[in-house]
Amino acid sequence: MKIITVSGPPSSGKTSVIIKAIEYLKKDNLEIGVIKFDSLSTYDDVLYKKIGVKVKVGLSGNICPDHYYMTNIEDCVKWGMSENLDMLISESAGLCNRCSPHIRDVLAICVVDNLSGINTPKKIGPMLRLADIVVITKGDIVSQAEREVFAFRVKQSNPRASIIFINGITGQGAYDLSLHLKEANEYESVTDKKLRFSMPAAVCSYCTGDIRIGDKYQTGNIRKIKL
C-alpha cells in the first residue's frame, strides 16, 4: 500500500488539493483511503465520501493534534491494509507551524497558500522544511510576481522539495501531483519507522488540566520569554 502524509496550515487547501489529485487517479481504478485528522470537528469526510473514497476521521480534541496523529498512525495503516487499499493518504492540519508529521521514506507533502504572507515559508518548521513536495495554492488570486516571490521563499526554506502550483477550485496542476502520488513508496506497516524530526514537546502542568496563571503553578517543560 502506498502511504502519503499531507499536512499544512489550516485552510490552506489540503482537502481540495487531495480531492483534485484523486480524481486523476480514479481512472487507474485505485482503491484509495483517506484519514482525516482534525481537532474539534470536520466536514471534509463528506467531501471524500462523495468522490468514492474510503475515509476515517480522527478528532484530537484536547490533545496536541501532532501527538494524536503519531499515536494513531500505526492503527490507521493497519486499517488501510485490512481494507485492501492501494493508497492511504493521511491529512493533518499543522496547527502551530512546529508540527512534524512526516515519516522517513514515506512521501511527505506540505500544502501552503499564497495568501498566507511572504514570510510564512520561513515561519513553518519541519512540516515544510522536510517535505518532499510543497504544493502552493490560491495562485489564481494573486499576481504572477507574488507567486514567484512566494515560491522563491519556499525554495529558500526547503531547497530539496519539488514545488507544484495547484488551483484547488479548477484542479489546474493537480495532475502533476497525481503522478508524484503514484511514485510513493509502498509499506505494509509503519511500525518502527521514524519521524523525520521530533514533534513539539509539551509536558507541563497545563497539559494535565491546570488553568491557573502563575509561576507557582507551573511544572514540567517550561520555556520563558527573555524580557
Partner: peptide
C-alpha cells in the same frame, strides 16, 4: 516538473496584489 523551468506566467482579472 522543474520549478526553474516554469513555462507559463498567468495574468487574470481576478488577480490582486496582496502584499
Amino acid at each position: 516538473f522543474s520549478m526553474e523551468n516554469k513555462l507559463v506566467a498567468q495574468l487574470s482579472q481576478n488577480m490582486n496584489f496582496v502584499m
